[in-house]
Design a protein around this nucleic acid. Structure first.
Length: 288
DNA sequence: CACTTGACCTGTCCGC
DNA sequence: TGCGGACAGGTCAAGT
């Protein structure tokens, strides 16, 4: 999925839809996707009221009145879709993607006491949900390792540049995708921001000038802010909490636009493989 | 440690 | 229309 802008869009949607609701029941398929015991679920999830929804990097945290939180990672194809009233479909968006829920990809279902429900759907089953004490969250491995939030007010261009020192011998695309450098960047916004900064994805991190880092910092923040305004990117499976798609892909300048003209210079956009991922560039604007 | 590559899954699309 | 292979918003555990 879901990179920072998509997860943030889901967070905002869920905040207005489920805060204050009380959980009546929960079901899930595999232990891999939801490793907690039945006893944990009974003690800390059932009858809990949702008090807040937060995000760190690409991870969502649903804080509960029991002092526990549901942590959720959507990985590539995860969705969190809210359905108003499962008996009548009231509040259920008229979107072909979510006409019938639960469906084949539904892995976790949370029923609320008012008849509404939250579905965690995940076609590829890479995503996960887990329940843990809220105060333990900062101690988990992921939170210890993950880099700063790129959109935080206090996050500066200088700090951005300094974070890359740990990945000086790799290419800039691989470094951007490394969650321990900066949080929340994925394949779409890596390509889009590199195009914005006119940087070839295979440029060695150690070759970038201070000026180039500053431009990349500005482009990354700009692209992510625009993506949040547009409700994220929907290439395929991504939908927000109401089951609706985001519109960033209508705005994208290079991502998934191979064969089309670069909006800046008209050169045909090319697709290549960098850091094991499909990578889109303008071969004129972004030279090695 | 830093870096790269394959594995985890299911579905879809493209070429034969 | 069928079938194989490549590929897909992301991490991880291995390997070098």
């Amino acid at each position: 999925m879901p990179e920072l802008p998509e997860v943030e869009t889901v967070r905002r949607g869920l905040s207005s839809l489920i805060i204050g609701k009380t959980i009546k029941s929960e079901t899930h398929d595999t232990e891999k996707g939801f490793p907690n015991t039945e006893a944990d679920v009974r003690s800390f999830l059932i009858d809990a009221t949702i008090i807040d929804i937060r995000r760190r990097a690409k991870v969502l945290m649903i804080d509960l009145s029991t002092g526990y939180s549901l942590l959720i990672h959507l990985k590539m194809t995860g969705q969190l879709v809210f359905v108003g009233d499962t008996r009548f479909g009231a509040g259920h968006p008229n979107d072909s993607l979510v006409n019938i829920l639960p469906d084949k990809s539904t892995r976790v279902t949370v029923q609320f006491t008012d008849g509404s429900a939250l579905y965690f759907n995940d076609q590829r089953k890479f995503g996960w949900v887990r329940l843990l004490p809220t105060i333990e969250i900062p101690n988990i491995d992921f939170m210890q390792k993950v880099g700063p939030e790129p959109l935080a007010k206090e996050f500066t261009a200088k700090e951005f540049m300094q974070r890359f020192s740990r990945r000086s011998k790799t290419n800039i695309k691989a470094a951007l995708l490394d969650q321990s450098v900066v949080a929340g960047v994925g394949n779409i916004y890596a390509d889009e921001s590199l195009w914005g900064a006119k940087l070839h994805p295979q440029r060695l991190v150690s070759s970038l000038s201070e000026q180039e880092f500053e431009t990349l910092y500005n482009e990354l923040r700009s692209v992510m802010n625009i993506a949040i305004e547009k409700g994220g990117s929907s290439n395929h499976t991504y939908v927000n909490a109401e089951g609706k798609k985001g519109s960033y892909m209508n705005f994208a300048r290079v991502f998934r636009r191979e064969g089309l003209a670069c909006p800046r210079c008209g050169t045909t956009i090319e697709k290549m493989r960098v850091a094991g991922r499909g990578t889109h560039i303008c071969p004129y604007c972004q030279q090695l």
